[in-house]
């Protein structure tokens, strides 16, 4: 009985030594933490920041967005507000773009309406990042591929106002900056 007790105590003590050996080994390993303001992490690949608009390939100042509003509808938190201007263009301007479409329109619509065409133009793309949960449903739902995630990991601010963006203005400002 006594012998057993002593043996147990000894194995118990030995287990502490074994543990300390692990600690000791790690003590001499290189540091794996990063001291943030002085150093920065490099592996931020795949980071999903807030969404941003994708510009058109041929015109960096116009967004691919066609103002359909499907992102605003699918958003679980209602962060996205689109400000859309409806521009009524006389059909004359459309004529030079596409002539083949004209006869079709003639058949379908009543006489006076055929002369004009309403176009939805994006004026501002308002994102309230405070309520965004970064689920990515808006990016997926966009039929034009007009949204993507930004990669600014170090975004920080002092007030909520700073996280209400107009993404259209942001996209243009970025392009001008470059």
């Amino acid at each position: 009985m006594m012998v057993k007790k002593i043996a147990q105590t000894l194995t118990g003590l030995w287990s502490l030594v074994v543990g300390l050996r692990v600690t000791g080994k790690n003590f001499f390993q290189p540091q794996i933490t990063v001291h943030y303001p002085r150093e920065k992490v490099e592996s931020i690949e795949g980071y999903r920041g807030h969404i941003e608009l994708v510009p058109k390939d041929n015109d960096p100042f116009t967004a691919r967005c066609m103002a359909c509003g499907s992102c605003a509808r699918v958003c679980p938190s209602g962060c996205i507000t689109l400000h859309i201007k409806k521009v009524t263009e006389p059909a004359v301007s459309a004529k030079k773009e596409d002539n083949s479409q004209k006869p079709e329109q003639n058949n379908q619509k009543a006489a006076p309406a055929k002369k004009t065409k309403t176009k939805r133009v994006l004026e501002a793309f308002e994102l309230n990042y405070n309520y965004c949960s970064l689920c990515g449903l808006c990016v997926q739902s966009c039929p034009a591929g007009g949204l993507r995630f930004s990669d600014n990991v170090y975004l920080a601010g002092f007030s909520r106002k700073e996280f209400e963006f107009d993404l259209l203005a942001r996209m243009r400002a970025q392009k001008e900056g470059k």
Binding site: T11, G12, L13, S15, L16, V18, G19, R21, V22, T23
Partner: peptide
């Protein structure tokens, strides 16, 4: 094995 040495076998 490191976890085992460090914690699981630890008498405490």
């Amino acid at each position: 094995p490191i976890y085992k040495d460090l914690v699981t076998d630890n008498i405490i």
